[in-house]
């Protein structure tokens, strides 16, 4: 029952986060006078394909490094090779074949990842410090001392 009550909190929390993200975009929209929706979609697709290709490539290299005789590496390596090729080819096609532009966008991706990790580290680091520092009200049961079985019971008439 208590768990159900707690789970029902996730809806409002998700809604609150969505509202904050929406408000941030609305603020920028109002201050900047708006932007073309097609530009937003174009940039998101470019980020998606580039990150997809680079992540697949990183996973391919990790898989190649960790390959051993029990793993079914052919499927894994060939699959990741295809996914990498697909992601990077689509990105290259969107950028008119410019590898220099791809490098610049890749660097921005790395910059975003480091910023995200720094923000996550700050919030969860502080949360950890706050949660571990909680002082609890002393439990009277824990203060009691053992009588080693020497118990006397007083019965009231």
């Amino acid at each position: 029952m208590r768990n159900e009550e707690r789970e029902s909190w996730w809806g409002p929390v998700a809604l609150l986060m969505f509202l904050i993200a929406f408000s941030m975009n609305l603020l920028v929209w109002q201050l900047s006078g708006g932007t073309e929706f097609s530009l937003i979609v174009e940039r998101m697709i470019l980020g998606f394909t580039l990150a997809f290709g680079l992540t697949s490539f990183a996973l391919l290299l990790i898989s190649l490094g960790a390959v051993h005789r029990h793993v079914r590496w052919q499927e894994q390596v060939m699959g990741l090779l295809l996914l990498t090729g697909l992601g990077l080819s689509l990105t290259n096609w969107q950028m008119d074949g410019s590898f220099a532009a791809m490098r610049n966008e890749g660097v921005i991706l790395l910059s975003g990842i480091t910023a995200m990790l720094a923000a996550l580290g700050l919030v969860f680091g502080l949360l950890l410090a706050l949660v571990t520092g909680r002082e609890h009200v002393p439990d009277p049961l824990l203060q009691m001392e053992s009588t080693h079985g020497d118990v006397s019971i007083e019965l009231e008439d």
Binding site: I40, A51, L59
Partner: peptide, 19 residues
């Protein structure tokens, strides 16, 4: 905000999809 943030939101989705 409109160019790089949207690019990075797409990047986050792309990373999750690749995983």
């Amino acid at each position: 905000h409109w160019e790089e943030m949207m690019f990075l939101i797409g990047g986050l989705l792309g990373t999750l999809t690749a995983v």
